[in-house]
Amino acid sequence: MAGTSVKKKGSGSSIHARRVIAYIVLIIISFICLFWFYVLFINATRSNAELGRGFTVVPGKYLGTNFYNLFHGSLPVVRGMVNSLIIAGLSAFLSTYFSTMTAYAIHAYRFAGRKAVFTFILGIMCVPTQVTALGFVKLVQGMGLENNFIPLIVPSIAAPATFFYLKQYMDSNLPGELLEAARIDGAGEVRIFNTVAIPLMKPAISVQAIFTFVASWNNYFTPSLILHKDNTKTLPILIAQLRAADWLKFDMGQVYAMIAFSIFPVIVVYLILSKNIVGGLAAGAVKG
């Protein structure tokens, strides 16, 4: 007994040292994560002339001017943000609603081929979107849906990864007795799904809605193959256009304002919802 207590005291001081090291490393890593966004913020507040003179730690006074110039410049940024919002918002809604429906079909009913369907959906989870891009573009052209948001929104209904997460959550949070009770009360199957299953799935649905929204908001590859007209472009396409236009020779204040315009809304939303996001991610990881 005495021996162990001495040992514990001995390792106590080394734990203290390790804790200090851990904090120092964590602070350095946090600095490396945040530094770029801090520089972005500072530079978005400074004029082109000030930016040419090198970096300063304090913000300038040109934030409003830079954004004014950005909104009145040649890039349709406000339209781009609206387009991004429409596509990401509708994708998140359709993806979560119909993925819940798919998961519910597998979870609540015992039909022939149920296991095979489940395995099949898991299998197609691994097919990257890029490898079907050629056929996808040809299909969209054939349907006359170029410059249309439909081919960027509707495919999110079949989202295997979202389905898998929701199915896992359903297994532990949607007991069959509850559905049976609703049936005895005379509710129809569609009604049970909408009024019993969906409300109980809300925590998982909101986590997946956030992830689908962010993935769609950030997506560059597919939209750039479908959207060519200026008034249909999303923010990532406009960023690529900014890069290609070599704006570096013009107004750097505006360039930083544009980058800030696409990054900061996501950061603000993330900070508000971070508890759900980081927690939900871990929950999915434990189960998946």
Partner: peptide, 13 residues
């Protein structure tokens, strides 16, 4: 929260 933040940033931006 901080270390997960960069994952949500638009890769293009």
């Amino acid at each position: 929260t901080v270390i997960y933040l960069p994952n949500l940033i638009m890769a293009a931006a």
